[in-house]
């Protein structure tokens, strides 16, 4: 059983790192410009263009490599924004309870129930130029609620345990108890949550791009799908163009999710699933 979990850990890490390698090392080995045409339009895969070209004659493989970088970048930044917010809101909510808890959870539920894509839509309308940072920020600020809910229930159960009782006896303040006593006990959990949020953020980026609301003037896996969709690649049978970006996205996102569950099972075997 133990061994099996480790197998899952290794396999998912392996998949993820291979994709990362493709994005990081790829452009060195395969230095083709993803932004400008390098061949004829809509060419199927060939020796010259291993994944063919798009409707502008741009190399799909080069775009894919660049897109992986963009998606990873946004995933990491968005998760770095969402994790502390989720931990803080959930932590305070679970620790303090009472009215503050009710308010925080009510707002969490609003954000949670609301389709993130709609919320993002509204904001993106008013932000016509969207850099990677803007997109990462938007995603980060809307993807913390699930984490907040989970952290809250974690804190509530941790709180019952004795060490917090002893810490309170020793006269530590509330904030200190959360930071000094509770957080270290949840570090592994916070880490797996980061991985899991990253997995979701990359999907969110692609979803935004898919309706033309993602990063402007850059290539991401989502914008590749967007252009393929705009130019009707599916009905024209240009499978080499739209299959790879979604496939890579699935592999990245799924391997991160598998990694997060494997980590959870390893470190927090008693945890209720998310």
């Amino acid at each position: 059983m133990k061994k099996l979990r480790n197998t899952r850990l290794i396999i998912s890490t392996g998949f993820f790192l291979s994709v990362v390698a493709l994005g990081v090392v790829g452009p060195w080995v395969y230095p083709v410009d993803p932004f400008s045409p390098s061949g004829k339009r809509t060419q199927p895969p060939s020796w010259e263009h291993p994944l063919g070209t798009d409707a502008h004659g741009r190399d799909v493989l080069a775009q894919l490599m660049h897109g992986i970088r963009t998606s990873l970048w946004i995933g990491v930044i968005a998760a770095s924004i969402a994790t502390p917010i989720g931990v803080l809101v959930g932590g305070i909510s679970g620790y303090k309870r009472g009215v503050l808890d009710e308010l925080l959870m009510a707002s969490t539920n609003i954000v949670l129930a609301f389709p993130p894509i709609l919320l993002l839509l509204l904001v993106t309308v008013f932000v016509p130029v969207r850099t990677r940072m803007v997109v990462a920020l938007l995603i980060g600020l809307t993807s913390w609620p699930l984490l907040a809910r989970a952290v809250r229930s974690q804190v509530m159960s941790l709180k019952e345990r004795q060490f917090t009782f002893l810490a309170r006896m020793a006269g530590l303040g509330d904030i200190k108890i959360v930071l000094v006593e509770l957080l270290p006990n949840m570090m592994s959990y916070v880490f797996s949550s980061f991985v899991w949020l990253m997995s979701g953020a990359m999907l969110a980026e692609a979803g935004l791009s898919m309706i033309g609301m993602g990063v402007t003037a850059d290539v991401s896996l989502g914008t590749m799908l967007f252009w393929a969709q705009m130019i009707d690649a599916v009905r024209r049978g240009l499978f080499w163009w739209f299959i790879p970006p979604g496939g890579i996205l699935t592999i990245m996102s799924a391997s991160l999710l598998l990694l997060a569950t494997a980590l959870d099972e390893l470190f927090n075997p008693k945890l209720r699933g998310r």
Partner: peptide
């Protein structure tokens, strides 16, 4: 199932349509 859960809706739609 975890993997299916992570397939982007719209991409899966494109593949199905194709």
């Amino acid at each position: 199932l975890l993997t299916i859960n992570r397939i982007p809706f719209y991409w899966f739609a494109m593949v199905m349509l194709f």
